[in-house]
Amino acid sequence: MSAKASEISEMLAPTVAALGLELLGVELASSGNDAVLRLYIDAPGRPVDIDDCERVSREVSAQLDVEDPISTQYTLEVSSPGIDRPLFTPEQFGRWIGEEVKLTLRLAQDGRRRFTARITAVEGDDILLAHTAGDMRVAHANIEKARLVPDLVALGLAPQPKPGKAPAAGKGAAKKKS
């Protein structure tokens, strides 16, 4: 998350929590004089629905109008995390140990900025990953973007592999861990 997105996330998290929801993270994407402010919310123990998004949008819009943290015009979007859930904090990575994640780093590590790996542990602000090239330790501050890689077969969104054929390597089920 950018510094501005982190600032906005900290400002809005209590408002979202007061609605019984969790603010997972914020993305702020600028293009010229316009910007998109995207909030990802989660609902404990159930899927996020359109009513959740509308309630958060209403409350957050009012707060943003008063606090005015973005100097340009912007569009507010409130979204569920979806099956390719973004991960914003070390704590969120910790909830998904054993799952596959697609990462984009701010600075290249081992000659790469983009790769897919399995989350093996979280130690402080470091994310430990199993990659085909070997185990890696990535500082959370170096992660620009991270999304879970859903196992579409396990979710029932892709056909089962034919008997006798091994499933594609490295696919993990996208199920929330407590």
Rank of each mutant, 00 (worst) to 15 (best):
A108K: 09
Y40W: 12
Y40C: 02
P86I: 08
A141K: 06
R85C: 01
R118K: 10
D125Q: 11
D34K: 14
N33H: 09
L129Y: 04
N142L: 04
R118C: 10
S2L: 05
V60K: 08
A173H: 00
L87N: 06
G82Q: 14
N33Y: 02
L39T: 00
H131F: 13
M11G: 09
A43E: 12
Q109L: 14
A166N: 04
T132D: 13
T120F: 05
R147Y: 10
V16R: 10
E77F: 03
L21V: 02
A108G: 10
R46T: 08
P167F: 09
L21H: 07
A13R: 09
E99S: 14
P163D: 06
R113Q: 11
G82C: 07
A3Y: 04
S79E: 15
A121S: 09
P167T: 10
Q92G: 04
S57E: 04
K165N: 08
D49E: 10
T89Q: 10
M11L: 15
R118D: 00
V60T: 12
L87T: 04
Q109E: 15
R46S: 08
E77D: 13
R118T: 10
D151F: 01
A141N: 09
D52C: 09
W96A: 09
R58I: 08
L129E: 03
F88A: 01
T75W: 01
P161M: 05
R106S: 04
G170H: 02
D51F: 02
I41R: 12
T116L: 04
L12Q: 04
I8G: 13
Q160E: 15
A130F: 07
L105N: 08
R137P: 13
Q160T: 13
R58V: 07
F88K: 03
S2Y: 02
G32Y: 05
A117F: 05
T104W: 05
K171F: 01
I8E: 12
Q92T: 05
V36W: 06
E123D: 15
V149H: 01
V138L: 03
A29E: 11
A62W: 01
R112V: 10
H131C: 14
G45D: 12
I119N: 01
N142E: 03
L76V: 04
G32F: 02
